[in-house]
Nucleic acid binder design. Structure first.
Lengths: 362, 362
DNA sequence: GCTCTTTTTGAATCGTTAC
DNA sequence: AGTAACGATTCAAAAAGAG
C-alpha cells in the first residue's frame, strides 16, 4: 500500500475510502457521524417562525438496526487505519450516542472519557415538553485497554487557567461569522461544529505533525483547526459541495498559526444561584415562612422554589414586588427566614452556596 | 395480585422482587444500578459461579456480556411494573451508561432526555492521564414513543429562576452531614447520591401521591426525598445493613403534605374557558371590535362567539392564524379590545372568569 | 461612527382534548 | 379509530436595522 497522502479531501463513501488507506496510519480520528434524528413533522417557535431541522438524506436510516450496521461498519474501518497509539473521538447526541458507545466497546475500543459539550446558547424546548437539550456528548477512546496514547495534560491545564480540564466543556454553538454560508446567505451545512471544540480535541490528543482523520468531513472544521495547530489532516466527504467548500476554507488558513489566535476558551461557569437550589441543597425546606425586615408581609416557600402568599404566587422577586406594590424587588435581600429566633436574609444562604461553588468549578 | 403496598423496603434481589409486584403499578422508577465494570475484583456468571481466569479476550467478553444480561433482566422487570404513563430514570457513568442506554432503546423505552450531572466538587484525576471525570449521566425514558408522561415544566422553570431547566445540572457530591456514616465514622455506602439530585428528578417527573420505585435502594435517598415531597416510595435492596439504615433514615423525615407547597400544575392545567362564555356573561358584547397589539388586523365579535374580519370567519384562534398567515394562534393573547382608551387583551377577561370559577369552588 | 432596538436562529426525536 | 379544534410555548448571541 502506498504511503499516506495527507492534507486533502477524499470524495466518497467513508468506509470504502478508509479501507483504501494504509492500516495503522493515523494518530487521531475525529468523527461526527449522522445522528439518526428521525424528526417528525414541523416545529414552530412561539413566534410562529419555523425551525429549520435536519432532514437531509444522509441522516435518514430505515430503522435502528440499519443505523447500528452503519455504525459498526465505519467504526471497523476506522479501527483499521488508526495507529495502536492513536485515539478516536466521536460526537453525538442522545439519539445516537448510546448506540455508538456500545459499538465502540463491542469493537474493543477503550473508553478514556466521555466529554460533555455544554452549549452556552442551545435551542430552547419551545413546547415545554422536556428539559432543554443543552449538550452533546463526545466519546474519547484508545484502541485497547492497555494502549499508550497521547494526552497533553499540561496544555489542557493551561487552557483551563491552571486547573485540570474537566469532562464538561462550556462552548457556544457555531454561529455568526464562523458559520459557513451559501451565496444566498443560508447556512451551508446543517451541523457545522464550532472550531473551539476541535481546538480542544486536537490540542489534547495529538502532537504537531500528527495526522488527524475525519471520516465525516462536512465543512472541514477538523482540517481547518488541524492545519492551524500544525497537524496534518485528511478528510472524507461524500458531498461534492461540502468537500469543495472545506477545501477552500482550509486553503485560507495559515498553517501553524499562533494558537493564541485560534484560542477560544469556554466561558466560565456563571456563579448564578437559582433560589430553587437552596431547596435542593436542603438549606431551606418547602413550607418555610419568609417575611420582610419590618414583618409586614409573609409568604411560604413551595417545593419548586416559588413563593405563595395570600393571593400571590411567583418568584421571590415577583411576590415581594407585588406585596409592596412596587415595580420590582430584590427577593434575596427583601425576604428573611427565622434562624434561632433571629431574622436572616435569604442572601446569606446564597453567599454560602457561592462560596462552595467557587471552590472548584471552572 | 395484591394491591401495591408502598413506603417500605423489600429485602432481596431486585428482579425477583419486581416480578412479585403488580404490573403497571408505579409512576416513576429511579435506578442507580452497579457500575462495577472492569474495576478488578472477581468475575461472576449470572448464576453467581466464579469465572476462572482464562484468556483475556474471553474474560472480557464474558464480563461485558454478563453485565448486558444483568441490565436486560432488571430493565425488563422494571418495564413490567411501570405504568404506561410512567417514566424511568437510570444513572450511570461512562463505564456502564452506554450499555444501559442501548438496552433501554432495545427494550423500546423512549429516551426523553439524557441529563448530565455536573459535579461541582469532583475527585481530581490524580495521575494526569485523562480529563477530570466530573460528571455522571442520567437517562430519562418513557415507556413508548407515543406515551403520555408527567413533566412538571413550570415547576422546573420556577426551580431554575424562571428560565427553562436545561439538560445539565450542576450539583455537589453527597458529602458532610448528608452522607450516612457507620458507627466507626466511615461512609456507610460507597455511592450515596445527593438528595438534591433526587429532589429534581422527583419534582420534575411525578405528582404528589405518586409511587416512586427504586430497585437499587442503597441508603434510601430516593425514599427520603419522595417522602419529603409527598410521594409514596418503594425500595428494593439486597443488603440487610443498607435496608436497615435506609428505613431508619426515612423514618426521621417529615412527610410533605401540603398540596399548595408541593404542586405547581402550571398554566396548561387550568380549566378551559370557551370564548363564547364571555358573551354569555356579558363581559363582551356582540359587535365589539378586536385588534392585535400592533393594530395591524381587526375583527368583530359575533353573537355566537365567532369572529368576522374582511374575508375570514371563525374562532378567535382561526381568524388570528389566518390573518397572520401563521400555522396557529392563541386568540386569547393575540386579540385586544379597547377599555377606557387602552388596549386590553382578551386573556384578562378569561382570567376574570377563571377567578370567579375558583371562587365558587371554595 | 456609535448606540439602542428588533430580528433572526440553532443536530428538535417538542400537544391535548373533543367530537 | 381518525379528524378537527383549541391554544400553549423560547434563550442566548449575533446580525440587522433604526436613529
Amino acid at each position: 500500500m502506498s504511503p499516506l497522502e495527507t492534507d486533502r479531501v477524499i470524495l466518497g463513501d467513508c468506509v470504502e475510502a478508509m479501507n483504501a488507506l494504509p492500516a495503522n496510519s493515523v494518530d487521531v480520528i475525529f468523527a461526527d457521524p449522522p445522528y439518526n434524528l428521525c424528526l417528525g413533522g414541523e416545529l414552530h417557535r412561539p413566534d410562529n417562525s419555523r425551525v429549520d431541522g435536519v432532514d437531509d438524506a444522509w441522516d435518514r436510516f430505515d430503522d435502528r438496526a440499519a443505523y447500528d450496521r452503519f455504525t459498526h461498519a465505519w467504526l471497523t474501518a476506522a479501527r483499521r487505519v488508526l495507529k495502536d497509539t492513536g485515539t478516536i473521538w466521536v460526537i453525538g447526541s442522545y439519539h445516537n450516542i448510546y448506540r455508538v458507545g456500545s459499538a465502540l466497546q463491542d469493537l474493543d475500543f477503550w473508553l478514556l472519557n466521555d466529554i460533555v459539550w455544554r452549549k452556552s446558547n442551545p435551542m430552547p424546548n419551545f413546547r415545554g415538553t422536556r428539559f432543554t437539550n443543552a449538550h452533546e456528548t463526545l466519546l474519547w477512546c484508545s484502541k485497547a485497554k492497555d494502549a499508550r496514547y497521547t494526552f497533553n495534560y499540561d496544555a489542557m491545564k493551561a487552557l483551563n487557567d491552571g486547573t485540570q480540564m474537566r469532562s464538561d466543556w462550556t462552548l457556544p454553538l457555531c454561529t455568526g461569522q464562523e458559520r459557513l454560508k451559501t451565496e444566498g446567505g443560508d447556512k451551508l451545512h446543517p451541523t457545522q461544529k464550532p472550531a473551539g471544540l476541535l481546538y480542544r480535541v486536537i490540542l489534547a490528543s495529538s502532537q504537531p505533525g500528527d495526522v488527524i482523520l475525519d471520516p465525516f468531513f462536512g465543512t472541514g472544521t477538523t482540517g481547518a483547526v488541524a492545519k492551524a495547530l500544525g497537524r496534518h489532516w485528511l478528510g472524507i466527504e461524500q458531498d461534492q459541495d461540502y468537500a469543495k467548500a472545506a477545501t477552500a476554507r482550509i486553503a485560507r488558513i495559515e498553517a501553524g498559526t499562533d494558537p493564541a489566535l485560534l484560542h477560544n476558551p469556554g466561558r466560565k461557569a456563571e456563579p448564578r444561584i437559582p433560589f430553587g437550589s437552596l431547596l435542593e441543597r436542603g438549606l431551606l425546606k418547602p413550607g418555610t415562612v419568609l417575611f420582610d425586615a419590618q414583618r409586614r408581609h409573609t409568604a411560604r416557600v413551595r417545593a419548586d422554589g416559588s413563593l405563595i402568599a395570600a393571593d400571590v404566587k411567583g418568584s421571590i422577586h415577583q411576590v415581594g414586588a407585588t406585596l409592596q406594590g412596587a415595580p420590582s424587588c430584590n427577593g434575596w435581600t427583601f425576604w428573611h427566614f427565622e434562624l434561632k429566633g433571629a431574622p436572616v436574609p435569604l442572601d446569606v444562604l446564597r453567599q454560602k452556596v457561592r462560596a462552595e461553588l467557587a471552590e472548584r468549578m471552572n
